[in-house]
Every structure is written in C-alpha cells, then in structure tokens.
Design a protein around this nucleic acid. Structure first.
Length: 260
DNA sequence: ATGGTGGGTTCCCCA
C-alpha cells in the first residue's frame, strides 16, 4: 500500500499537481492538509475520476481542512474537535485489517514562541499535549500522518542553532513532540529510512529566492506508526519534484510504501 | 534587523 501525506495549501488551487502526482506515483491513499474548502464545495468528482472513490473529508471555510482519499474502501471514519476550537484539523479512517489512519493538521503557532503573549503558540502546545494524552490511551494499531508543524530533531532543519527561537523548532515544541512520541511509542517512519544524522526536510518557505539552491528546509510533515506496525514500511520518499512544479505548495509530498 | 511569497466566498488574515 502506497500512502502519501501532503499539505497542499488549498486543494482547489492544486488539482493539476494532484493529477500529475497520481499519474507519476500511483498512490493508494492520499492524506491532504490545508484543503481550505468547506465539505459541500470539495472537488469530490475530481478525486472519483482519479480513482479515489472513498473519501473522508473534514473542511471549513478558508482555513485548515483535512481530507483522506482512498482507492480502497474503508469501514469507518470519524474526527475529533481538538482544543474545543471547532477547527477542521483531524480525520481518521479504519482500514481493512483493523488499522486506524489518523490525518492531522497541527496549528502552526504564529510567530512569537511564547505561550503567555501568543495565543496561537499556546494553542499549538495544548494541541500537542492533547495528542499526548490521547496517544497514551490508544489501543488500536494506528498510522499517524500529517503536517505536525514541528521539526523535532537537529537535522530536521537546515540550521538548528539559528532556528532555536523560530516557531517549529523551539525547545518547548521539540520536547512536547518527544513526549507525544514516547506516550504511544510511535515509530518515526521517515527516520527509519534516513538516519537522524542526515538532513531531511519536507517544507521550504515560499519566501526563499531559490528554495532548491538555498535548501533552508524543515521536516514539518511526519509519518508515524504504532509499535505493532514497526518494520512494515518498505520504502520512503520525500517527493522533491512536486515542490518544483509550477505554482506549488510549500510542502512536498511524503510517500511511504507499506506491507500491511 | 528586515522582509521576503502565496491562498482565500481577500482590501486583511493566516501560513
């Protein structure tokens, strides 16, 4: 099973990218974040025509929004309202074989890394803490993917020292994410394929002059699995090509091949 | 130290 997580920064602005990606890489399941569209305006026909007839969609107007599109049927879908904000930041499905697939869009957290003065940063930390409590009680074998908006390891960013006070790589966020990983024993699947000593990114700012040359990236997108599913992933690729297509998302797709 | 780009029932907010 080929699984992809991709923050597409508006699904409607990225239809040609999705078509090309599906043509080139033939994924079985697409987990999208930042769809930026309400459910009644979601391009369902477009995905059905591409072969993704099974859809779990959770959207809202203008902001956030997640969607899991599948070629293979799934038996159940649900979402949860994290931090009681009413945001569309999570959608889950139950795959055949009893594995749950959770698709998350964690708050970015604003600019100022101080929970006292910045409500968005406080929200982000609270969100990760709720995920931690939830992870502790999670009994079902699960895959967790999405834009988690935190680059936890030194080599998940282009310069760890320079980004120490930049939201996404502050000690508070990195520690919160490590607690979350510990809470369920999540396996960081991307790092099973690229050792922690090597640079690995999934996001490059739109504001860089030449993103590929400067390569000031961050690993904000993640694929984790429950301990029972450790070793089931057979291949991983951050599809850099897609970041270079015309009018791209600022995130590259992260692709995993599973033998479930 | 600053500002850079992109998307959205857009003239401001969010990333």
């Amino acid at each position: 099973m080929r699984l992809v997580t991709w923050n597409i920064n508006s699904v409607r602005a990225r239809l040609s990218h999705i078509s090309k990606f599906v043509e080139d890489f033939a994924p079985d399941i697409l987990c999208l974040q930042e769809t930026k569209v309400m459910d009644d305006m979601f391009p369902r026909d477009f995905f059905a025509d591409l072969g993704f007839e099974h859809m779990a969609i959770k959207g809202q107007k203008s902001y956030h929004g997640v969607a899991t599109l599948s070629r293979v049927p799934f038996s159940d879908q649900w979402s949860r309202d994290w931090c009681e904000k009413g945001d569309a930041r999570h959608i889950a499905i139950k795959l055949d074989g009893g594995v749950d697939l959770h698709n998350f869009y964690v708050p970015a957290g604003g600019d100022e890394p101080d929970p006292e003065s910045n409500d968005k940063f406080a929200h982000k930390i609270q969100f990760v803490e709720e995920m931690t409590i939830w992870s502790e009680a999670l009994a079902t074998p699960s895959i967790l993917v999405g834009d988690l908006n935190i680059a936890p390891l030194e080599h998940d960013v282009w310069d760890s020292k320079k980004l120490k006070k930049v939201v996404s790589h502050t000690p508070l966020e990195r520690e919160a994410m490590m607690e979350l990983i510990k809470a369920h024993g999540w396996h960081d699947v991307m790092r099973e394929f690229v050792p922690a000593s090597e640079k690995l990114y999934s996001w490059w700012s739109y504001r860089a002059r030449d993103w590929r040359v400067a390569n000031k990236g961050r690993r904000l997108d993640h694929i984790w699995v429950s301990p029972e599913l450790g070793g089931k992933a057979k291949a991983m690729e951050v599809v850099l090509d897609a970041r270079g297509w015309e009018k791209p998302s600022d995130h590259a797709p992260v692709m995993i091949d599973f033998d479930l």
